[in-house]
Design a protein around this nucleic acid. Structure first.
Length: 643
RNA sequence: GCCGGAGUAGCUCAGUGGUAGAGCAACGCACUUGUAAUGCGUAGGUCAGGGGUUCAACUCCCCUCUCCGGCUCCA
């Protein structure tokens, strides 16, 4: 019996008997044999040691293939567990998958370890790596596996709940061992531990067993692993870069915002520089909304409890709301608003609405307060008090598609204006805990899908991730160093119009129910500003910079400078006329990331010149002052809104 | 909320039981300055807050608050 093996280039090799992936690789070439990480057989991944017994299409994976990195990292997690069990006998081990950029493994140590222990574990891993231990797969009956792991409660739990999705029969589990270390695992793995050379343990943190906060708390060790030294180093450099961009650090350095213990956690004070930045963002967004059919409204910060009972927030999110305020007049309770929608609904309801008015788009920069758990707070990115660029669109059923299409275009245009060019979408469907009937959910979900298709936007579906009242589209952007941030959200809602008994008079003179679309495009202004700070590493484009231009003087040039500044209307500038050396003034301006620095000295008076330093670009020295002023005016202009 | 770490001058940080230190910033004086920090001087701290141990606590112990890294959560 011959076995025909088809390679990716369609060529066929024939073997007389069963053969392993490794043997095929070596047969193709010794280099490939040595580099083989895993093998893809009929589009499924296997170890190179897998024995092929029938005709198949295969591909030998090497470090050049993307999937190989996940395999390497998964194997690295095993190596980590092996090292930990060597060093800390009696440790219980949980799960250890590969993740983006690396891997982790969860442990329950007899005594908690600390960051200081990581280098020791790393050293042990290196030792094991050098031993070139083979990863060997075996299939065991569940009772036998139970016996093997009889002192490992987490593994026993995993064996107990393992099913066919693990790639073996229901009564069996798949195991991997290298030397004395054995772990429950679906695989595949790299051929031996020698493949795992360039790794680093990056972090130690807590994690609940099986991600459930009712379960015991394990210690999770994070690591990263690569095929090449350069890749590892590049990754570590990127982490340092990300740290430098931390908006909390830059916010302090650039005097954008501050906090105070007396305020309480999750709340921020915007200093003049930050307020300038924030106002620039807000004003740009406001202008775009004014030009695109939104009506501006303003609403208060608190409302009677009945409002939140009607909306369902009290039922669904009471834990996440600040506790109520007690009225002094009567028994009424008031809640700080966690969302703006009920207030906008009240505005809608304040008049009898006609189909002729729809769609009605109510916009507000609305400040909301959510009682986030202390552990989740993270600078501006996750605050308790924040301001949404929030709007609610009330429209007829037939208007949904055009509204959502429009919104998608509008939102993408807005995000692009702020420098985010790379935008992706998620479509989130009905969650377990939801209100409204399935039919409405399907219609709403379908109309979001149609809009995404109409606009030609690629999206992934996030099952069960919708809001409790409706499905949503979330837009994500990639920042300058490739991190993904969720910004815009567009949500269709049939439930709230029902809850609040919203109506409009139709062409037939009947009272019909409008549909609501909730949408926030920048999301929270605080969060958006934080993301912008990290995206630009605190070096904002001129139109966003709090101070756009700094004029540095040498000697007495005050009249000349006065003439220049008279032409700079609309430019946010400062004059540094301290009697100190120019070098120091430049140093200070640079430290504040001022995009433009105009240097004016006495010798410019007779020549009508100036010198302009441009952040991260070549300076323009001793040029005609009129052309420099033109350049400045042009450079600080806000981007066109391309919609 | 849970696991772990941290909190010292406005900022960045040193200080392992004997009454607290540096650099930058601030303030004063001198220097009058052409592309990344001029020199000298002055002032500044209930060592997060509270309690305890000790002859003596920034230092050791307990509680609280806040921050950081994770987990969980995110309308």
């Amino acid at each position: 019996m011959n076995i025909e093996i088809t390679l990716p280039d369609e060529s066929v090799r024939t073997y007389e008997k069963a053969i392993t992936g490794e043997e095929i690789a070596f047969d193709i070439g010794p280099k490939l044999g040595k580099d083989a990480v895993a093998i893809e057989i009929n589009r499924k991944l296997y170890d190179t040691s897998y024995v092929i017994t029938e005709n198949a299409s295969i591909k030998i994976l090497t470090k050049k293939d993307i999937q190989s990195l996940s395999i390497l990292r998964h194997s690295s997690a095993h190596l980590l567990a092996q090292a930990v069990l060597n060093l800390y006998p009696g440790t219980l081990y949980g799960v250890g998958p590969d993740i983006e950029d690396g891997f982790y493994y969860d442990f329950l140590f007899k005594e908690n370890i600390s960051d200081a222990d990581l280098p020791k574990i790393e050293k042990e891993m290196l030792k094991l790596s050098k031993a070139n231990q083979l990863f060997v797969k075996s299939i065991q009956k569940k009772p036998d596996a139970m016996d093997l792991f009889k002192n490992q409660q987490f593994k026993m739990e995993l064996i107990d709940s393992a099913d066919e999705s693990e790639g073996v029969e229901d009564s069996e589990v798949s195991l991997y061992s290298n030397n004395e270390f054995i772990d429950l695992c679906r695989g595949p793995h790299v051929p031996n531990t020698g493949f795992i050379k360039h790794f680093k343990l990056t972090r130690l943190g807590g994690a609940y067993w099986r991600g459930d906060e009712n379960n015991s708390q394990l210690q999770r060790i994070y690591g990263t692993s690569w095929f090449n030294k350069e890749d590892l180093e590049q990754f570590l450099t990127r982490r340092v870069e990300a740290e430098k961009r931390d908006h909390r650090k830059l916010g302090k350095q650039l005097e954008l915002f501050t906090t105070a213990d007396e305020l309480g956690p999750g709340q921020f004070l915007w200093k003049p520089n930050g307020a300038l930045l924030r106002n620039t963002i807000e004003n740009y967004s406001k202008k775009a909304h004014i030009n695109n059919g939104y009506d501006f409204v303003n609403t208060p910060h608190i409302g009677r409890s009945v409002l939140w009972e009607t909306s369902g927030h009290l039922e669904h999110y009471e834990e996440g709301m600040y506790p109520p305020l007690q009225s002094k007049d009567n028994d009424d309770k008031y809640y700080l608003k966690p969302m703006n929608c009920p207030f906008h609904i009240l505005i809608y309801k304040s008049e009898l609405r006609s189909y002729k008015e729809l769609p009605i788009r109510l916009f507000e920069l609305g400040s909301v307060y959510r009682f986030e758990k202390t552990g989740v707070l993270h600078g501006l990115l996750r605050a308790r008090g924040f301001t949404q660029d929030d709007a609610h669109i009330f429209c007829t059923f037939d208007q949904i598609n055009s509204e959502v299409n429009n919104l998608l275009r509008f939102s993408i245009a807005l995000l692009k204006s702020f420098g985010f060019k790379n935008i992706e979408a998620d479509l989130s469907t009905k969650p377990k805990k939801a209100i409204g009937n399935d039919e409405d959910w399907n219609i709403a979900t379908r109309s979001l899908e149609v809009a995404l298709e109409d606009e030609g936007i690629d999206f992934v579906t996030a099952e069960g991730e919708g809001a409790f009242y409706g499905p949503k589209i979330d837009l994500h952007v990639k920042d300058a160093i490739g991190r993904r941030w969720q910004l815009s959200t567009i949500q269709i809602d049939f439930a709230q119009p029902d809850n609040f008994d919203l109506e409009y008079v139709s062409t037939q003179n009947s009272k019909d129910r409008p549909v609501m679309i909730h949408r926030a495009l920048l999301g929270s202004i605080e969060r958006f500003t934080g993301i912008l700070i990290e995206h630009y590493a605190g070096e904002f484009p001129s139109w966003l910079a709090p101070t756009q231009l700094k004029i540095l003087t040498i000697g007495d040039v005050s009249d000349y400078v006065k003439n220049i500044t008279a032409k700079l209307s609309g430019v946010r500038f400062e004059i540094d006329d301290r009697n100190i050396r120019l070098g120091e003034k430049i140093h200070d301006a640079k430290k504040q990331n001022i995009p433009l620095t105009l240097i004016i000295g006495e010798k410019d008076l007779s020549n009508n010149t100036g010198s302009l330093n441009i952040l991260n670009s070549e300076s323009k020295n001793n040029l005609d002052i009129v052309s420099l002023v033109d350049f400045i005016i042009d450079d600080v202009a806000e981007p066109e809104f391309e919609f």
